[in-house]
């Protein structure tokens, strides 16, 4: 464990907590893409299948359990409890356009042609693009609530910090996983446009408004 990865995990945790707080306090899922949350749930399910078979550390297990349960809870809140506030008309990104290419790529490009490894690879590729429905929805509505933009900033920062972690592990631990690194870079690059808007607008106290 290094500081980059620890802070990265805490950013990820903060993002998920921020999202749950937003939903619970505002009693609404307005502006949230249920599709992105479904994809994130799928990422955790396919990545943490080894939760019970591969014990790494108490920290690792606790975080996996939290990520799994919170992402499933978020999907539940969006599609059942606060369904009335779900803005389905603007959450129209076709998930199959992400699921099918990621599945095919995971079958073709992976470290080992085994079910666990292919599912792990699929979860890595899917995580890189899972935010697209949410970013697409914001581009359609043209705005995002401030707390939703904090959520996105924390979520985007987590994988950015993981890139630093992979650099660190490459130089100091001789550990390197090209699939995770390339997907992580793609994932972080997808947030760049949002990072720019977040820093120039939200941090100036303005609401996140996309240029019409």
């Amino acid at each position: 464990m290094n500081a980059f990865r620890l802070v990265g995990d805490l950013c990820h945790l903060a993002a998920i907590v921020l999202l749950l707080l937003k939903i619970w306090k505002s009693r609404s899922v307005a502006g949230l893409s249920g599709k992105s949350q479904i994809l994130f749930g799928l990422v955790f399910v396919t990545r943490y299948l080894d939760l019970v078979t591969n014990f790494v550390s108490p920290y690792n297990t606790i975080m996996k359990v939290f990520f799994l349960s919170s992402s499933i809870a978020t999907v539940y809140l969006i599609y059942t409890k606060f369904k009335a506030t779900y803005d389905g008309n603007h959450d129209t990104f076709r998930m199959e356009f992400l699921l099918i290419p990621c599945a095919l790529l995971a079958i073709v490009v992976n470290h080992e042609f085994s079910p666990m490894e292919i599912l792990w690879t699929f979860s890595i590729y899917l995580e890189a693009v899972a935010i697209l429905p949410q970013l697409f929805m914001i581009s359609k509505t043209g705005e995002a609530e401030t707390i939703t933009s904090h959520y996105l900033f924390a979520l985007g920062s987590y994988r950015g910090l993981y890139i630093m972690n992979w650099l660190y592990r490459y130089y100091y631990e001789n550990n390197f996983d090209v699939i995770a690194v390339v997907a992580g870079i793609v994932q972080t690059v997808l947030y760049c446009d949002f990072f720019y808007l977040y820093i120039t607008k939200v941090l100036q106290g303005k609401k996140l408004q996309l240029p019409a």
């Binding site: 080894d50 591969n54 550390s57 592990r169 001789n174 996983d177 995770a180």
Partner: peptide
């Protein structure tokens, strides 16, 4: 042995 790098990350 070298722990599989990805398996100890979230």
């Amino acid at each position: 042995e070298k722990k599989d790098p990805k398996k100890d990350e979230l």
